[in-house]
Design a protein around this nucleic acid. Structure first.
Length: 390
DNA sequence: TTATCCCGCCAAGTC
DNA sequence: GACTTGGCGGGATAA
């Protein structure tokens, strides 16, 4: 059951928009939130609530990020942040691993074979697929890389099977396709075919491509890859950018959202259910929506700083919210001059009062008050802690 | 029509 | 047993 039930009917003009909820944008905002020198630990619950999404979506992000060295799992619900500096090492490892596994030798054959092959994918049933996918030696593709990076222990079974299908491992194998070769462009369909091998049931392929879309969204938002169209076929494909633009992507805020959608970098992530509920944000903050996108970043940044940054020295990479605001956060409006970190708890209260929404739903009123109270408490604690430190 | 991918069910894994 | 993790595919939206 969702935390917030919005019972207000959705007007026809306020239809569900998938543009506002992409995984790529969620990743962008995740990075904006945590890509800071003073962030060391990340709690999944905290991330989900700050970003206004279900925890399930956070798993998608962290699995991909973990697989390329941006963070690593510490404990239940806890990840340690390594940042973009973790990527080069991870890529190098993947490259070496890919070399050992014969990705280079494989990819030329695979791509050529994939082009030559017809599309009948009904040679195997689903169960066969699973086993085949876990063991390259049993595949009809002699050079197909082992989907499991680690050597498979004897007696490997269900858990290994699950691991082999994990988003993280798929990410690593997808990346290997680029870093272990000089392949220029690759479509997701090709990638799926290479990683799975030919002769799979269409539904298996479709599922794999879906996951690759998820991965591509995240990698695109980090500017590790970019979506292009194949010059000949005009089919969508992906080009490897590597770390050329990744750092920029991590710190920049796109203030000029393109009207045309850019793969993996869409707008927001805040509504709960398609068709049923318009963005909760819009319901809660009907008048603020259009004006707070950029202006509010600074103050939201400040609010975040109270929590994330006990060091009063301004960080050069200070966190800034993206063009969306989490459901769980009040959305102040005033602009604070850069460098000003003075206003804290008392300001928060006045802002909360200023922007207290006119809910139709009593539950939402209560929820808003609950969050305001929680934030106040949190800020008081952080302020006290900060005072103690200094 | 095809490409894209959100969403949440539910099974496996962990505590 | 409760909670966490995450594979999976239906089906809706975007191009």
């Amino acid at each position: 059951m969702p935390l917030v039930e919005v019972n207000a009917p959705v007007s026809k003009s306020q239809t569900y928009s998938r543009k506002q909820k992409s995984l790529g944008l969620l990743c962008t905002n995740f990075l904006k939130l945590y890509n800071r020198d003073d962030v060391h630990l990340i709690g999944l619950d905290n991330a989900a609530s700050l970003l206004g999404v279900e925890r399930r979506r956070i798993y998608d992000i962290v699995n991909v990020l973990e697989s390329i060295g941006v963070l690593s799992r510490k404990a239940k619900n806890q990840y340690s942040w390594k940042g973009f500096k973790g990527i080069p090492g991870a890529l190098e490892e993947l490259r070496e691993e890919g070399m050992r596994e014969g990705f280079i030798a494989y990819q030329y054959h695979a791509i050529r074979d994939a082009k030559d092959s017809d599309d009948d994918g009904d040679d195997y049933d689903d169960d066969d697929d699973d086993d085949r996918g876990s063991n390259p030696n049993s595949s009809s593709q002699p050079h197909r890389p082992n989907p499991s990076s680690a050597p498979k222990p004897l007696g490997a079974s269900k858990s290994d099977n699950r691991r082999e299908k994990s988003l993280g491992l798929l990410t690593q194998n997808f990346v290997k396709l680029f870093v272990c070769s000089n392949v220029e462009l690759i479509s997701l369909e090709e990638a799926a075919r290479i990683l799975l091998g030919d002769g799979h049931h269409a539904s298996i392929m479709r599922t794999k491509v879906r996951r690759l879309y998820d991965i591509a969204n995240v990698l695109s938002s980090m500017h590790l890859i970019e979506k292009v169209h194949h010059p000949e076929t005009r089919k969508p494909a992906f080009r490897w950018l590597g770390l050329k633009f990744a750092d920029v992507a991590a710190t920049s805020v796109d203030q000029n959202e393109s009207k045309k959608r850019v793969f993996g970098t869409d707008i927001t992530n805040t509504s709960y259910k398609r068709n049923k509920v318009e963005s909760v944000e819009k319901n809660i903050y009907p008048k603020l929506n259009t004006q707070m996108h950029v202006k509010n970043e600074t103050l939201e940044n400040e609010v975040q700083m109270n929590v994330l940054d006990l060091d009063m020295n301004q960080s050069s990479k200070s966190y800034r919210f993206g063009p969306f605001a989490p459901n769980s956060m009040p959305k102040p409006k005033a602009i604070v001059p850069q460098g000003s970190r003075i206003r804290k708890v008392h300001d928060f209260e006045s802002l909360a009062n200023m922007y207290r929404p006119q809910y139709q739903n009593q539950a939402l009123k209560d929820l808003f008050d609950h969050y305001v109270q929680a934030w106040k408490t949190w800020n008081v604690e952080v302020s006290q802690c900060s005072a103690t430190v200094h």
